[in-house]
């Protein structure tokens, strides 16, 4: 049996298909999970509706939404799966119960970019029906694999929270507007978007990625799983940030490996500060040498002398002549 999925991180898409397959008693080895939109498979006999793999209509961000110029990002409605929605009622035949921990795990696994994720998630669901304590067997190969995927999705989500960089767009209304371009490894945009909504509530923003985008306008958070295009925006504040990055670095403690394990190179191209890194590394040793060779100076600043003349602890009001 072949199951076609859009496979862009939407959990309900897999869940509905898996629920149906499980109710029909189809064992994992008989299902061929096929990522991304082809023709209909599993539900051919269940539903006469049009194939649900087709791309939903594109909605261009319109000036009317206050998001016109400067943002060349397309935003889509949620991908409709009419066939599934029509044929699967939640209270349909055979209710399936799973431990809450499975849902948490499967939701993460389905966001992973590995095409084998659907099969793995279904195998776990299948085994759970007879092995009630499956999830506790944390050293079992299937669970180990699922946990590894969950961890990878978690890490990618964490890095998205860390490495998204907003750039400001020209103001048009009373709310400030920002846009970010990010390239996640997995299909995590919808999963992580609420974090940005909770944090950047008082400004409008778009996060655009090749795996989907999210838009916040102060009222509604919308996400799409369609690929967006990279916007070209320049934000002058990036210069101040680069200044900070260069100066908070201590050349006497160079630890390049440590930096790279936490900030892998694949993220660098969208980080404004990353362009400084090669030079900072190259010059570090020389800077430390220079520091060591320069003897402590014998002259002291004037205000130090002034301070010394007065008795502590009632220092002068002068602050050194800023």
């Amino acid at each position: 049996m072949k199951i076609e999925l859009r496979a862009r991180g939407e959990f309900t898409e897999w869940r509905d298909a898996a629920r149906e397959a499980l109710c029909a008693g189809v064992p994992p080895r008989d299902i061929d999970w096929n990522a991304q939109g082809g023709e209909h498979g599993l539900f051919d006999d269940l539903s006469p509706s049009p194939p649900w793999g087709i791309a939903p209509a594109k909605v261009q961000l319109s000036p009317a939404m206050g998001w016109g110029e400067g943002a060349s990002v397309s935003v889509l409605g949620p991908p409709p799966h009419p066939a599934l929605r029509a044929t699967l009622s939640p209270k349909g035949r055979g209710e399936i119960r799973v431990p809450p921990a499975f849902l948490t795990l499967a939701e993460a696994v389905i966001c992973h970019s590995d095409p084998a994720r659907f099969d793995l998630a279904y195998r776990l669901l299948w085994r759970l029906q007879t092995e009630k304590h499956l999830l506790g067997d944390v050293s079992g190969p299937d669970i180990v694999r699922a946990h590894a995927m969950q961890k990878s999705v978690g890490r990618d989500s964490h890095k998205m929270k860390a490495f998204v960089r907003f750039k400001e767009l020209p103001e048009t209304g009373d709310r400030r507007r920002f846009i970010a371009w990010f390239e996640p490894e997995h299909f995590i945009v919808a999963r992580v978007a609420p974090f940005f909504q909770r944090r950047f509530t008082d400004m409008d923003w778009i996060i655009a990625t090749p795996k989907g985008s999210a838009v916040w306008d102060g009222d509604t958070l919308r996400t799409s799983d369609e690929a967006a295009e990279k916007p070209e925006i320049v934000d002058d504040t990036d210069d101040l940030w680069r200044t900070y990055f260069a100066h908070i670095f201590n050349p006497a403690r160079l630890k390049v490996k440590m930096m790279q394990s936490e900030m892998p190179k694949k993220y660098w191209k969208n980080l404004p500060e990353a362009e400084l890194i090669p030079d900072l590394i190259r010059d570090a040793e020389q800077r430390v040498r220079d520091m060591a060779e320069r003897e402590a100076s014998n002259s002291m600043p004037k205000f130090h002398a002034a301070l010394q003349r007065r008795s502590f602890p009632s220092p002068p009001r002068g602050e050194g002549g800023a």
């Binding site: 860390a162 908070i248 201590n250 630890k255 490996k257 930096m259 500060e273 590394i281």
Partner: peptide
């Protein structure tokens, strides 16, 4: 959240 890492391996 560490938003960046400097080449000294320290989180920013």
């Amino acid at each position: 959240i560490c938003h960046a890492y400097a080449p000294d391996g320290r989180c920013i």
